[in-house]
């Protein structure tokens, strides 16, 4: 465990909490892509099937929190606050993300076993899971500040993981090429958003895309 990974994990945790609190406090999931949240639930489920493979208390606890929070979020969007779900703007075709991620996981993995292929699938899936949400923001042309904070925390997490991987490569000689490449793709997808966040949201303006 190094500082980059710890801050990355905390940023990830913060993102999930921000989203749950936003939906709970406003009693609304307006502006949130339910499709992205379903993809994240799929990501955590397929990745943390290795939960019985004990690494540390920290690891186990975080995995359980991520899985539970992702299902809670999906429940809030599709059940409890269904009436506020903006499905007309959540039109990204997720099969274009799920199927290629799965096929790629079958082709490029560390080991051709069920758990390993599912872990690899979750890594590929995670790298693009935010696309329905970003698509929704670009379609409506704006995002609430709280949604922007959520996206910033979620995007920062993988960027911090890249620093963690560089650190681990230099200090432990440990690296996982699948995670690294997917993590870079994931971070690059947020770049446009990061730019808007820094130039607009941090200056107190609403995140609005130029018409």
């Amino acid at each position: 465990m190094n500082i980059f990974r710890l801050v990355g994990d905390l940023s990830h945790l913060l993102a999930i909490i921000i989203l749950l609190l936003k939906i709970w406090k406003t009693r609304s999931c307006a502006g949130i892509s339910g499709k992205s949240q379903i993809l994240f639930a799929i990501v955590y489920t397929s990745r943390y099937l290795d939960l019985p493979n004990f690494v540390s208390m920290y690891n186990t606890l975080m995995k359980i929190v991520f899985i539970a929070a992702s299902y809670a979020t999906v429940y809030l969007i599709y059940m409890k606050f269904k009436a506020t779900y903006d499905h007309n703007h959540d039109t990204f075709r997720v099969e274009f993300l799920v199927l290629p991620s799965f096929v790629l996981a079958l082709l490029i993995n560390h080991d051709f076993t069920v758990l390993e292929v599912l872990w690899t699938f979750s890594i590929y899936m995670e790298s693009v899971a935010i696309l329905p949400q970003l698509f929704m923001v670009s379609k409506t042309g704006e995002a609430e500040s709280i949604t922007s904070h959520y996206l910033f925390a979620l995007g920062s997490y993988r960027a911090l993981y890249i620093l963690n991987w560089i650190y681990r490569y230099t200090t432990e000689d440990h690296y996982d090429l699948i995670a690294i490449v997917a993590g870079i793709v994931q971070t690059v997808l947020y770049c446009d958003f990061f730019y808007l966040y820094i130039t607009k949201v941090l200056k107190g303006k609403k995140l609005q895309l130029p018409a």
Partner: peptide, 10 residues
């Protein structure tokens, strides 16, 4: 080589 047991990250 990465194996399942080396997936020590989240």
């Amino acid at each position: 080589k990465s194996t399942l047991s080396s997936h020590d990250e989240l």
